[in-house]
Simulated scan of single mutants.
Amino acid sequence: MLQTNEDDQMIEAIKDMVKEWRRHLHQHPELSFQEEKTSQFVYEQLVSFGGLKVTRPTRTSVVASLIGSQPGKVLGLRADMDALPIHEENELEYVSENPGVMHACGHDGHTAMLLGAAKILTEMKGEIKGEIRFIFQHAEELPPGGAQELVDAGVVDDVDYIVGIHLMSLLPIGKVGIVYGPVTANSDMFDLKIIGKGGHSSQPENSIDPVIMAAQFITNIQQIVSRSLNPKEQLVISTTTLQAGSAKNVIPESVQIGGSVRSFSPEVREQAVSFIERIAKGVTEAHGGTYEFNYQYGYSTVFNDKALTKIVEECVAEALGEEFVEYGEGAMGGEDFSAYLQKAPGCFIPLGAGNAEKGIVYPHHHPRFDIDEDALEYGVRIFVQAAKNILG
Rank of each mutant, 00 (worst) to 15 (best):
Leu2His: 15
Asp8Leu: 13
Asp8Tyr: 14
Glu12Ile: 13
Met17Ile: 13
Val18Lys: 02
Trp21Pro: 13
Arg22Pro: 11
Gln27Ala: 10
Ser32His: 03
Ser32Val: 07
Glu35Phe: 07
Thr38Asp: 02
Ser39Arg: 00
Ser39Pro: 10
Val42Lys: 01
Tyr43Glu: 11
Tyr43Leu: 13
Glu44Ile: 11
Gln45Tyr: 12
Leu46Asn: 05
Thr60Gly: 06
Ser61Cys: 06
Ser61Phe: 03
Val63Pro: 02
Ala64Gly: 00
Ser65Lys: 13
Ser69Tyr: 11
Ser69Gly: 11
Gln70Val: 12
Pro71Asn: 10
Pro71His: 08
Pro71Trp: 10
Lys73Gln: 11
Val74Met: 10
Val74Ala: 10
Leu77Ile: 06
Ala79Asp: 07
Asp80Lys: 08
Leu84Asp: 02
Ile86His: 01
Asn90Ile: 04
Leu92Ala: 06
Leu92Tyr: 11
Val95His: 14
Ser96Gly: 09
Asn98Gly: 12
Val101Tyr: 03
His103Ser: 04
Asp108Lys: 00
Gly109Ile: 04
Gly116Trp: 01
Ala117Pro: 02
Ala118Asn: 03
Ile120Lys: 00
Lys125Cys: 08
Gly126Gln: 10
Ile128Phe: 04
Ile128Met: 10
Gly130Asn: 06
Arg133Val: 12
Arg133Phe: 08
Phe134Asn: 06
Phe134His: 00
Glu141Arg: 09
Glu141Pro: 01
Leu142Phe: 15
Pro143Tyr: 15
Gly146Arg: 01
Ala147Val: 06
Leu150Glu: 03
Asp157Phe: 11
Val159Arg: 04
Ile162Glu: 00
Ile165Asp: 02
His166Trp: 01
Leu167Met: 12
Leu170Lys: 15
Lys175Glu: 11
Gly177Ile: 02
Gly181Ala: 07
Pro182Glu: 00
Thr184His: 04
Ala185Met: 00
Ser187Arg: 09
Phe190Met: 07
Lys193Met: 12
Ile195Thr: 10
Gln203Pro: 11
Asp209Val: 02
Ile221Gly: 04
Gln223Phe: 15
Ile224Val: 09
Arg227Leu: 08
Ser228Ala: 13
Val236Glu: 05
Val236Asp: 09
Gly245Glu: 06
Ala247Cys: 11
Ile251Arg: 08
Ile257Phe: 09
Ile257Asp: 01
Phe264Pro: 01
Ser265Ala: 10
Glu267Cys: 11
Arg269Thr: 06
Arg269Ser: 05
Val273Arg: 12
Ser274Gln: 14
Ser274Trp: 13
Ile279Glu: 01
Ala280Gly: 05
Ala286Ile: 10
Ala286Arg: 12
His287Val: 08
Gly289Gln: 04
Asn294Gly: 13
Gly298Ala: 12
Tyr299Asp: 00
Ala307Asn: 14
Leu308Phe: 05
Thr309Asn: 04
Ala317Tyr: 07
Gly321Met: 05
Val325His: 01
Val325Glu: 06
Tyr327Trp: 10
Glu329Ile: 13
Met332Glu: 04
Gly334Asn: 05
Glu335Asp: 09
Phe337Val: 03
Phe337Ser: 02
Ser338Trp: 01
Gly346Cys: 05
Ala353His: 05
Asn355Thr: 07
Gly359Lys: 08
Ile360Gly: 01
Ile360Arg: 03
Tyr362Ser: 10
His366Ser: 08
His366Leu: 09
Arg368Glu: 14
Asp372Thr: 08
Glu377Ser: 12
Tyr378Asp: 15
Gly379Met: 03
Val380Leu: 06
Ile382Ser: 04
Phe383Glu: 02
Val384Phe: 04
